[in-house]
Design a protein around this nucleic acid. Structure first.
Length: 764
DNA sequence: GTTCCACGCGTTTTT
DNA sequence: CGCGTGGAAC
């Protein structure tokens, strides 16, 4: 089996798969068979007979990626793969913390806070400390905490010699205490806690270092400092770490990912030579050439040039639209004709830089009755009704979870108001207990309603404890009153459906677990347990296994709801065209790709221009977008676009200019817009636009102000002088006519928005 | 305790 | 322009 797959690989792929001399860095270009290499390597290791399944650790960034890998491997290997650690960083750290929860100082059933929970936890903390949230913004505190954790820093580790961050640091510290008290961890905490556990506990560290002889990491360019440190700690003196990544596809710098980890890895893990996967099996020549030409404009690349032997294909079709609605309209026209010519709708994707752009596209698509699906956006488990139901389950599981308590104590409304909660908070801090427990100490100080709530939770816990998971969820939805509440709500039917869906998810989850744990291990090789018991550290391993098996289905399910998007529920609409941001398109591929809104200020995004490495990250983003296309690629941009309620004018994106003209085929200019639309009902709009064209004068990327004769001189990047604020650089502008405003970053006076009709700005 | 309106804000996001 | 948050009125 493995020989046959191995033969189907190209030379660099073979070299990577069979590499056997320490750590390896594989530079895998877009569409170069990265996942194939990773999975084949795992199969190769297992089939060699020298590597135990249990000594493999494989890390990915998304659940989707790890599931896909697991699926591919299990289809190629007749063994039970349960002993292999494969998953996301967060999933694996969670696994480790559950197993060693005592050493990690956590309750076994600790709950995981998502971003929303984390924010409300921070707000609550700030309230108890009487901190003005107008002066210190909770979201800023959240960002501060998360970025500190991403760098592996606790509050006490943060250098504050300049004294700027004292308040943030104190809040970070208090927040950690609060989480600890409540038995909850946030996403960053999963990793940091796991890292600290391994640092602190020598026995455990040696055990895992000894166990994981082979570590494989996908999307290495997306690792942050904390994840790097975790990998480093887990790999022993003789590491076999197999890192796969593509520096050109690093697009998550803004959330702490650090491409320089690749170079760091090469040095610190003594990588002898880097393997480059440069043959692309996805896209036609014009598409690939364009991607290569674009990315050449970036500095500091590890370097790589993709090639294909599947022919040039079609040029990139470029569309210039008068405005965003013409753009959307043209796209939908083109998509309709593609579908008529038998392109499968699900093979068509429209990409955009920011979510706000999807609205107008959806509007036009809807109008034509084409079915579509918007990728990303709201997670199933983020819906309010789902979070409510889950909060009941969480409180049943862990009565210390104050976040869960506060979410549901008065939902559905049961006449428990702020006052009662405040009293509980006082009692709780007096006794150093949770809000839920504090009810026991209240002794008649409170209304009966609270006692009813307490009894409700207790009764539900008792009644549900022996039930299968799905029945338990069902019972909670009924007992809590959620069912009744949404049934009586005017537009509660969709929410009811979602709650039903939650029960379905719970029952599906349970059966998945059963299938997973009953995979027969009678394939003639040692079972997982046998393999593990042969290990030197069998005592710890036995504990591992026991601990994992002992976790209640509810704990497992709640973890699942925090760590997974619930995307699989929304797997409907196979025949629909796909809409998504460029970010969420990473890792995906489609026959036809439309990259829309290719305008200066939008893509590259204006905010990126003032950030370190910002433009280069935007260019990598564009590179990712281009390389999603298999057969056909379209670019579109609009001269003017409605943003935040007003029109803004943009010139076409520099990224279009960076692609050789011979790769492009201009299929529509703005002038042609006015006659090209097939939509008759648009006529009056067209006429209005024509009028606008006559009365307004657009300059691309230039301010048109009737009050300022030399307006075309005010360009982004120009230095200007203001009598009061001194010299500054123009960062941005918006509006036109007497509304025109410019954003100026002054050398000594910060960044300000100034109305051109009022402020006097001289070009320096 | 609930409801409603005003205000402010608006890149990308997985876990 | 459209949404979510929060404070004030009922």
């Amino acid at each position: 089996m493995i020989e046959k797959i191995f033969k189907s690989l190209n030379d660099p792929q073979k070299e990577a798969v069979s590499y056997d001399d320490g750590s390896m860095l594989v530079l895998a270009g877009a569409g170069s068979g990265k996942t194939k290499v990773l999975t084949t390597r795992i199969v190769w290791l297992i089939s060699s007979g020298k590597v135990n399944i249990g000594s493999i650790l494989a890390v990915t960034f998304t659940n989707k990626a790890s599931k896909e890998m697991l699926l591919r491997i299990s289809s190629l290997v007749p063994y039970n793969l349960r002993g292999m650690w494969i998953g996301t960083f967060h999933g694996l750290c969670n696994r480790m913390l559950r197993m060693h929860h005592k050493d990690a100082a956590l309750p076994e059933s600790f709950q995981i806070l998502d971003v929303q929970d984390q924010l409300s936890s921070i707000k609550r903390l700030m309230k108890t400390k009487n901190i003005d949230t107008e002066i210190i913004i909770p979201k800023d505190v959240q960002r501060f905490i998360n970025s500190a954790k991403e760098q592996g820093l606790r509050a006490k580790d943060i250098d504050d010699s300049e004294g700027f961050n004292r308040k943030y640091i104190d809040l970070y510290d208090a927040y950690d205490d609060q989480c600890q008290r409540e038995g909850v961890v946030d996403f960053g905490e999963l990793l940091l806690r796991s890292l600290e556990l391994l640092q602190r506990n020598n026995e455990l560290r040696f055990h895992y270092q000894d166990r994981f002889k082979h570590i494989l990491i996908d999307e290495f360019q997306d690792t942050n400092a904390l994840q790097y440190a975790w990998i480093k700690l887990l790999s022993n003196k003789d590491p076999n770490v197999f890192a796969v990544g593509d520096d050109d596809q690093s697009i998550y710098g803004f959330r702490g990912a650090d491409v320089s980890n690749m170079e760091k890895f090469r040095k610190e893990f003594k990588v002898k030579n880097i393997i480059r996967l440069e043959q692309n099996y996805r896209s036609y020549g014009y598409i690939l050439d364009s991607a290569n030409a674009l990315i050449k404009n970036n500095n500091d690349r590890l370097g790589k040039n993709l090639w294909t032997d599947s022919g040039m294909g079609d040029q990139i079709k470029v569309v210039e639209a008068l405005d965003d609605s013409f753009e959307a309209n043209w796209l939908v026209d083109e998509i309709s004709s593609l579908i008529r010519s038998n392109v499968c709708p699900s093979e068509i994707a429209i990409l955009y830089r920011s979510n706000a752009q999807s609205r107008i596209l959806e509007h036009q698509i809807n109008k034509r009755g084409i079915s579509y699906r918007v990728y990303g956006g709201f997670r199933f488990y983020d819906r309010a009704e789902i979070k409510h139901a889950l909060a009941y389950l969480r409180l049943i599981e862990n009565s210390n979870d104050d976040t869960a308590f506060l979410r549901i104590v008065n939902f559905p409304p049961r006449k428990i108001g702020v006052k009662s909660v405040e009293i509980l908070q006082q009692i709780a801090s007096l006794h150093g207990c949770s809000l839920y427990e504090s009810i026991n100490y209240a002794e008649g100080k409170l209304s009966k309603n609270i006692k009813f709530f307490y009894d409700l939770i207790e009764k539900t816990r008792l009644d549900s404890v022996a039930l299968p998971l799905a029945n338990m969820v069902d019972l909670v939805i009924k007992n809590s009153g959620l069912l009744e509440y949404y049934a009586s709500e005017r537009d509660g039917s969709e929410r009811l459906e979602n709650l039903k869906e939650l029960v379905t998810a719970a029952s599906g989850f349970l059966s998945d677990e059963q299938i997973d744990s009953t995979i027969p291990s009678d394939f003639g090789i040692a079972s997982e347990q046998d393999q593990i018991l042969n290990s030197k550290n069998s005592n710890i391993l036995e504990e591992d296994l026991k601990a994992e098996l002992n976790l209640s289905p509810l704990t497992k399910f709640l973890t699942h709801t925090s760590l997974e998007s619930g995307e699989s529920q929304a797997e409907v609409g196979k025949e629909a065209i796909q809409l998504m941001t460029v970010h969420s398109a990473k890792g995906l591929e489609y026959d036809v790709i439309f990259i829309t809104g290719l305008e200066e200020g939008l893509f590259p995004h204006e905010n990126s221009l003032t950030e370190m490495d910002g433009l280069e990250e935007e260019r990598r983003l564009m590179y990712v977008a281009i390389t999603r296309a298999k057969k056909q690629l379209y670019f579109s941009f609009a001269q003017m676009r409605k943003l935040y309620g007003q029109y803004r004018y943009h010139k076409k994106s520099r990224f279009i200019e960076e692609i050789p003209n011979e790769n492009l085929k201009w299929v529509l200019s703005a002038q042609q817009n006015l006659s090209s639309s097939s939509d008759v009902s648009l006529n009056y709009v067209i006429n209005q636009k024509k009028q606008t064209l006559h009365t307004e004068n657009f300059y691309s990327n230039t301010i048109s102000s009737s009050l300022s004769k030399n307006s075309s001189l005010y360009k982004i990047g120009k230095t200007v002088h203001h009598n009061k604020f001194g010299n500054g650089v123009i960062l941005n502008f918006e509006g036109s006519g007497s509304d025109a405003r410019v954003e100026v970053k002054f050398e000594n006076n910060g960044t300000k928005w100034l109305a051109l009709s009022i402020a006097k700005l001289d070009i320096v």
